[in-house]
């Protein structure tokens, strides 16, 4: 049973505002561990996750545990057991942390009749003690790292078959990158993860497999270590140079400067605006 992939995607195409952003994406996500989805900026990683979620117009076949989900509305896809941690977190800034989490609690489905299981509550409490302490604080007033933890916690509260996580370390300080990575590592022990990650050190530590996108297509798939240890392929496929360690710090500084130049909550609302305007 562990040999069957949890997610099988064939010929996925997607459009945003009438513009094609995915040409033909086919990939498989094994039923355990982390699968990294890599590629340069703008190649369609986020769009792939959004297409899987049904958040943008899509076609192609998507099978979750052997059941087709490509015609389902977003909330139905989620109810089948898919957790989503979007790029830029998208926590509800005007809601408290507790409300963010309460909103995410799903009843029925694989979560059982009583919503969240005690084990899950415990898991989230262990992983993110920081945000549990702040449960009555408005999420918009949290730091970027804390918001990321809320976003991860929202997905981890429920029993999912698969998590889709989009650049969870984007814009975080090195210490927070470590914390988030630890959390993901623990999470991956209970649920398979498809992880978009620009920080190659993180990807290397977590991922068993890697899929590389370019121009809305899959250009490489295989064990993550094989790819990330091969410097020339990293340069060719991901467009970053040097040791994985170096490329990490490079990305890090880039992300950080972005983070500092923009207030978090403002960033959040801008994201939302853009989505509204184009929808």
């Amino acid at each position: 049973m562990s040999t069957r992939p949890v997610l099988v995607v064939r010929g996925l195409t997607a459009r945003i505002a009438g513009q094609q952003v995915l040409e033909d994406v086919s990939l498989e996500v094994p039923a355990r561990g982390v699968t990294a989805l890599l590629g340069r900026n703008g190649v369609g990683k986020t769009s792939t996750l959004k297409a899987l979620m049904g958040l943008i117009e899509r076609s192609g076949t998507i099978e979750l545990d052997g059941e087709p989900v490509d015609r389902l509305a977003t909330h139905k896809v989620v109810q089948r057991g898919v957790g989503y941690v979007p790029e830029d977190r998208e926590v509800f800034g005007s809601l408290t942390v507790a409300e963010n989490l309460r909103l995410a609690e799903r009843s029925g489905g694989r979560g059982g009749r009583h919503g969240v299981s005690p084990e899950r509550r415990e898991l989230v409490g262990d992983l993110f003690p920081d945000i549990i302490d702040r449960s009555s604080q408005r999420a918009g007033t949290l730091s970027g790292g804390q918001q990321q933890m809320v976003a991860l916690a929202r997905a981890l509260l429920n029993e999912n078959r698969l998590l889709l996580v989009d650049e969870p370390t984007k814009g975080l300080s090195p210490r927070l990158v470590g914390e988030v990575t630890d959390a993901l590592e623990k999470a991956a022990q209970v649920v398979p993860v498809l992880l978009v990650e620009q920080n190659l050190t993180v990807a290397r530590r977590l991922a068993g497999d890697a899929v590389v996108l370019d121009g809305g297509r899959v250009v490489h798939a295989g064990p993550a270590a094989d790819l990330l240890d091969d410097e020339s392929r990293v340069v060719a496929l991901l467009g970053v140079g040097g040791e994985p360690g170096q490329s990490q710090s490079q990305h890090q500084s880039q992300h950080q400067s972005q983070d500092q130049s923009q207030d978090q909550s403002q960033h959040q609302s801008q994201q939302h605006d853009t989505a509204e305007a184009t929808s």
């Binding site: 900026n41 703008g42 853009t274």
Partner: peptide, 10 residues
């Protein structure tokens, strides 16, 4: 978002 992340559209 910085514009540099957006590749030129066709």
């Amino acid at each position: 978002m910085s514009t540099s992340t957006t590749p030129p559209t066709s």
